[in-house]
Amino acid sequence: MNAMTEPVAEDGYNFAFLDEQTKRMIRRAILKAVAIPGHQIPFGSREMPLSYGWGTGGIQVTAAVIGRDDTLKVIDQGADDTTNAVSIRGFFRRMTGVATTERTDQATIVQTRHRIPETRLAEGQVIVYQVPIPEPLRWLEPRETETCKMHGLAEYGAMHVKLYEDIVRYGRIETAYDYPVMVNGRYLMRPSPIPKFDNPKMDRMPALQLFGAGREKRIYAVPPYTSVKSLDFEDHPFEVERWEHCCALCGSNDSFLDEIVVDDSGNRAFVCSDTDYCGERRAQGHQGAGMPAGYGQAAADGAAPGRKGD
């Protein structure tokens, strides 16, 4: 150990858990991914202390790029306070000691599952997506050897068959999330299960977009200002979902809304899925119609009912 060595993280683990060799290996994969936008790069995904499917790919990507001066934001479903976001943020606090934030505009790295923040990301920021299934062609071809070939030869016709079928059956393209995109006019890519509402944010985004799939052992990337086009037909152009409601808390009419069942008779309220965006708007004085009377916090904090003396 010498003075150049980074401070040892908790329990004698290396900074950001992974050893430096592994981080270098992942950064090499990331560099390759950035060089070939949308192309999936196999990497030696490690077995992490969090479960596969819980974001091990995103965690490894973040661990490989995070430095001591970074500020990390972690969201799940757009919110900073969902259990899995809390858990991953806690993991990085323990393993790196870096600053964390809930503010999108103050983060240098945003790790996300299922959403892109409403606040536009800027140059210099990195957004890391957790990816369950990276292969966009998987629905029609379960074999890796075959999908590799289809990507290599840009044989993407069959993907349009799926969209064609949607229109036949439903009169519209029914895919609502993980909506396939063409990156830089060459590679078909899964944007991870974000709602298609978020797809347009990916197009020519000033921030670097990194995608990590731990279980499937793939990394891919979209460099800043790269074209990301959602697949569609000339006579059935891509559209995003719209709400008839505004956010009950901040009154926003242009953000993605969560629907919350507020009572036993099935009444609902709609609020921003992006908790930071909603909070910022309220701080600026925006106000919605308010939550229904009597809606409050229910006991869901994991404590044993009647066992902890509370």
Binding site: G53, W54, D76, H114, A176, P195, R242
Partner: peptide
């Protein structure tokens, strides 16, 4: 991991489907 990750919140995707 992948089977049990279905326990994690998916309400954003579900909201898209609802819409």
């Amino acid at each position: 991991g992948f089977v049990q990750h279905l326990k994690l919140p998916h309400y954003v995707d579900f909201q898209s489907e609802l819409t």
